[in-house]
Design a protein around this nucleic acid. Structure first.
Lengths: 156, 156
DNA sequence: GTAAGATAGTCAACGTGGTTGACCAAATAG
DNA sequence: CTATTTGGTCAACCACGTTGACTATCTTAC
């Protein structure tokens, strides 16, 4: 209703809507699988922490936000049981951020569900069309933007 | 780096990155054209206000947020000179929210710049590929999600 | 014509996800 | 050994959302 069949707005709106659709579907399914508290941003954070773990400063750099912001996000994920902080044995300043078992579970399930959602798109659109969308976007999106998993860019 | 050539994450990340690329480019150009304070969300809000104007409650419904949130957003846009509030002559409860001249200018320029950006994608990808992306997404995205211009859904 | 209910706007408190600036402790370079 | 860099945290702040409570006004029903 508020929307635009104005030509200029269609493409960005469709990209956003496509992303949102995927994320909504993902979280509906994750909630069913015992991860109701996992918010859209959290998947990207877990992804950025990675299996090896990292530090708050490094996490901030990966996500393109300040170390303070990264620290606060880690606090929340720690409170939810997805991450834990451990002292670095070789550098007393550092605190390693690592995924807990629950964190690993959440991330693993996210990837699986995303795969299923992609398959369901492929079932409607055709696998080649989905692959074509991916190829086209990969060509149009600068690598540094593609490689940025940052959640909060939208409102920043 | 933090990213995923994990298969499941590629499609959503590409959709997000594509959207972000467009929005970043839009705002870089808008800043050059005298609208540096216009944030990503604001375009959607102006769009939702529309040429006829509306009320805060109605705006909230259009954007899928509470009337209070819509009211606060209107406050900010009023402070920036993009919107104005006027009393409704026939209903003393209502305050009409309308675009100012600056608001119209910002929205008009957004649409023009988006068109140019789409053209630049078409120049690289081919017009038919861009149209195909749009068609595919239009088919995969539920109408109510496509028709939702809401900015803040991401972190809600 | 008035009592009751729905609707518009606002205020306050709060949560989340960001920002800067300041600061301390620990590591590293000269 | 001193000077600098780096990692983490604290505090204050901003944008954007939430719910709950409240007032003023309009609408409906009796």
């Amino acid at each position: 209703m508020a929307t635009p069949d104005r030509p200029g707005f269609a493409l960005p709106l469709l990209l956003l809507a496509g992303f949102r659709t995927l994320i909504d579907d993902l979280h509906a399914e994750l909630a069913r699988q015992g991860h109701a508290e996992l918010r859209p941003a959290h998947g990207f954070v877990l992804q950025a922490v990675g299996p090896a773990g990292t530090t708050a400063s490094d996490l901030g750099q990966r996500l393109g936000v300040s170390k303070q912001a990264a620290g606060k996000t880690v606090d929340r994920l720690v409170a939810l049981g997805y991450l834990e902080r451990v002292d670095d044995p070789v550098d007393a300043r550092r605190k390693l951020v690592r995924m807990t078992a629950r964190g690993h579970d959440g991330l693993r399930r996210s990837a699986i569900v995303f795969d299923e959602l992609r398959d369901s798109w492929a079932a409607t659109l055709g696998a080649d069309r989905v692959a074509a969308i991916e190829d086209d976007l990969r060509r149009m999106v600068p690598a540094d933007v593609f490689h940025l998993d940052v959640p909060g860019w939208f409102g920043g």
